[in-house]
Nucleic acid binder design. Structure first.
Length: 205
DNA sequence: CCCTGATTCGC
DNA sequence: GCGAATCAGG
């Protein structure tokens, strides 16, 4: 397989979406994650958070030999118009939803009033507003159908620990699907638990 | 052990 | 330019 324009485009898009190299490789097919990573680097888009300008010091690991490879930056940015459709705010339309209790979210605040926090304890990282992408929500709902419904005792290092149901009843279990490396949740639940780190970073302050 | 990206270097 | 092997980390 070779890096056709189309394949490169897919690579760029998915990488931009924060997809992992292995995921991209899988999508493309015929290449390994190594190939993808290698290509990513050659394309010069290894840094997913393209914040040019705010470059402070650092990034000078070579105190000795400067640049053995005459690196020329043939930047050609304006190539992609990138009609990225901004996802409209998720539609929390869940009026007549089924009585099934929605999985509690880690960043969910049950008590709207009670900013009390353990003394001197820095506030836990709050992923800003909980604007979960519609896709992520849909994904979660889908996943919960396939949940292995593990009990607490059945959880392991590599099972999703996302709670489902009401802890006060028997209708309670854990997702149990394969968790992502180093994360406590499966792919879908990671998606709602953590913000994609990209999205709209900061809307003008 | 599972996974992640980063880097190297022979091709 | 390519990507397997390797490295470094979670």
């Amino acid at each position: 397989m070779s890096w056709t324009d189309e394949r490169v485009e897919t690579l760029k898009r998915m990488w931009g979406e924060g997809q992992s190299a292995s995921a991209i490789a899988k999508e493309l097919g015929g290449v390994t994650r190594n190939a993808v990573i290698g290509k990513v680097h050659r394309l010069g888009l290894s840094n997913r958070t393209d914040d040019s300008g705010t470059e402070s010091a650092a990034a000078a690991p070579t105190p000795k030999a400067e640049q053995p490879t005459p690196e020329k930056k043939a930047e050609k940015k304006p190539a992609a118009p990138k009609p990225e459709a901004e996802p409209i705010a998720a539609k929390p339309e869940r009026a007549a939803e089924k009585p099934t209790i929605v999985a509690p979210q880690p960043n969910f605040t049950p008590a709207p009033r009670r900013p009390i926090v353990p003394a001197g304890q820095p506030l836990p990282p709050q992923p800003s507003a909980n604007e979960i992408s519609p896709e992520a929500l849909a994904s979660v709902r889908e996943v919960e159908k396939k949940a292995r419904k593990l009990s607490l005792m059945e959880l392991t290092e590599r099972t999703c620990k996302w709670p489902i149901g009401d802890p006060a009843t028997d209708k309670f279990w854990f997702c149990g699907l394969p968790s992502q490396a180093g994360k406590p949740y499966c792919e879908a639940h990671v998606g709602v638990a953590f913000q994609p780190m990209s999205s709209r970073r900061d809307r003008r302050r």
